[in-house]
Design a binder for these strands. Structure first.
Length: 477
DNA sequence: ATGTGC
């Protein structure tokens, strides 16, 4: 991206000046010079288009890890007021509805597992279903799946997956309200009947990590983490169901937008008023997709616990937090001193409630919501916490990952999967995957510098760094 | 992301 066209506000935020006849809201980009310079021009084009949508409140924003996506950029944040004609867009949520990260903390130190890493990798790989089109052990009927879609992680718990104390550390307590299975197509449900408790493919993973460095002692204490501790991060979403809901509603909302005479700058931005019938149906279906993802990560948490229970007798595995990356949620935010209910699209962006937020579990309330920036296979991840400035800067949103720097196609041409695997093994990182092609597409170098993303996220006031985690074992989809 | 796809 040519940053000459941007107006720099400070070291980590930039605005796109409006042409004299340009009808749109403010566009705000968070990022350092180097992150923005390497960002695709498409990101700017896409977020400028978002700024033209009806009912937008505040600026259309991109997070430091933004990259090109379908309609909205990934790393895009935009809030809309339903009462002022605000819209909802399936492209603003993304295909993998409620894709996110469940972070687990163990009572193990790195030296206690070091000699068992190969076994751990093998057993996790054997027990965690991963890869495109993979099914799990569960075969649900449609009425059973409807219950999953209504109850989310609470359903999984009732089936014996997980511990009751997990729920308090999942966004929405593990169950998104107002989920409407009736607004989810039969095809979407059919695709999901065998896919509960599966990781999926692409950038999804289950990673065993060690806490390498603590940045914020107080927050680390609240999150129950310290240097040398073993954590596990599970990155996955709503599988075939979420994808099918996205595909279905992309068509439905586009048709409805045409009927309502809503003009959009890009057909991928198909959207309808939040208060319209189609808008309400999409919200009901999306919420069902969120519950599917929450239940999915809950089952995977249970499978992970089983593996750790087999290999490390007496170990404990607790939920640190579960964050979603692809959602649109109704939240109360202060705008110009006034509280307003806004529908915040976060596509490839993490909710980052600051200290004191009532929806946070009491244990974390004084330090802010855990924000997890998932790295790529070789480069490590960060845990951050929502800060006092998060709400004013970004409607309490922050980066979600390293963000791609290179297309999958480019990455595949550059490295072979074997090459990447061997190199990582040399660095002491064990990878297990069915897909060599996936490994080459997911090469660490195909991603932005996660250290830079985390640092800039903090310096932009979106969230503050708490801990850096380095990978030991990675099960890739 | 995805029973990878105009």
């Amino acid at each position: 991206m040519n940053i000459q066209q941007l107006e720099q506000i400070n070291a980590y935020s930039w605005r796109l000046p409006r042409l004299f006849d340009e009808k749109r809201s403010e566009v705000l980009l968070y990022g350092s010079e180097v992150l923005l310079e390497t960002m695709d021009d498409k990101v700017l084009e896409q977020i400028r288009n978002v700024a033209m949508l009806p009912g937008l409140v505040g600026p259309a924003m991109t997070m430091p890890d933004a990259h090109w996506g379908y309609g909205f950029p990934i790393g895009g944040v935009a809030a809309f007021d339903a009462e002022q004609g605000g819209i909802i867009s399936a492209g603003g949520v993304g295909f993998d509805i409620s894709c996110g990260i469940r972070c687990l903390r163990t009572n193990l130190r790195v030296h206690e597992i070091e000699d068992d890493l190969e076994n751990l990798a093998d057993l996790l790989y054997a027990r965690i279903p991963a890869g495109l089109g993979t099914t799990g052990d569960l075969r649900l009927t449609v009425p059973e799946l409807d219950e999953v879609l209504r109850k989310g992680a609470k359903w999984a718990l009732k089936q014996g997956y997980g511990l009751p104390e997990d729920l308090a550390f999942i966004e929405e307590g593990g169950c998104m309200e107002n989920a409407e299975p009736d607004f989810v197509s039969d095809l979407a449900k059919k695709r999901q009947l065998g896919e509960m408790g599966t990781l999926g493919s692409g950038n999804h993973y289950l990673e065993v990590q060690v806490v390498e460095k603590i940045y914020d002692e107080e927050a680390a204490r609240a999150f129950g983490i310290s240097e040398g501790q073993i954590l596990i991060s599970i990155h996955c979403g709503s599988r075939g169901l979420g994808h099918q809901i996205g595909s279905d509603y992309m068509v439905i909302l586009a048709k409805e937008a045409r009927r309502l005479g809503i003009t959009i700058p890009d057909r991928e931005l198909a959207c309808v008023p939040i208060l319209s019938d189609a808008g309400q149906r999409y919200i009901g279906a999306m919420n069902a997709g969120i519950n599917c993802a929450l239940a999915n990560r809950q089952i995977l948490t249970h499978l992970t616990r089983e593996v750790f229970g087999i290999l490390f007798t007496g170990s404990s595995v607790d939920t640190l937090y579960d964050v979603s990356h692809n959602t649109c949620k109704k939240e109360r935010h202060i705008v110009d001193g006034k509280a307003r209910d806004l529908w915040v699209h976060r596509k490839g962006a993490t909710r980052a409630f600051g200290p004191g937020h009532r929806q946070l579990p009491p244990e974390y309330r004084s330090v802010g919501q855990p924000v997890i920036i998932g790295g790529s296979m070789g480069t490590g991840s960060y845990i951050l916490a929502g800060s006092d400035t998060s709400e004013a800067r970004s409607f309490a949103s922050a980066s979600h990952g390293a963000g791609r720097a290179m297309s999958r196609h480019q990455a595949k041409k550059r490295w072979s999967g074997r090459e990447v695997l061997d190199r990582l093994k040399g660095e002491g990182i064990l990878i297990r995957s069915d897909s060599m092609r996936g490994i080459s597409e997911e090469a660490p170098e195909a991603y932005k510098d996660v250290d830079e993303v985390a640092k800039v996220t903090e310096e932009a006031g979106l969230a503050r760094r708490v801990a850096f985690l380095s990978p030991k074992v990675c099960i890739k989809g």
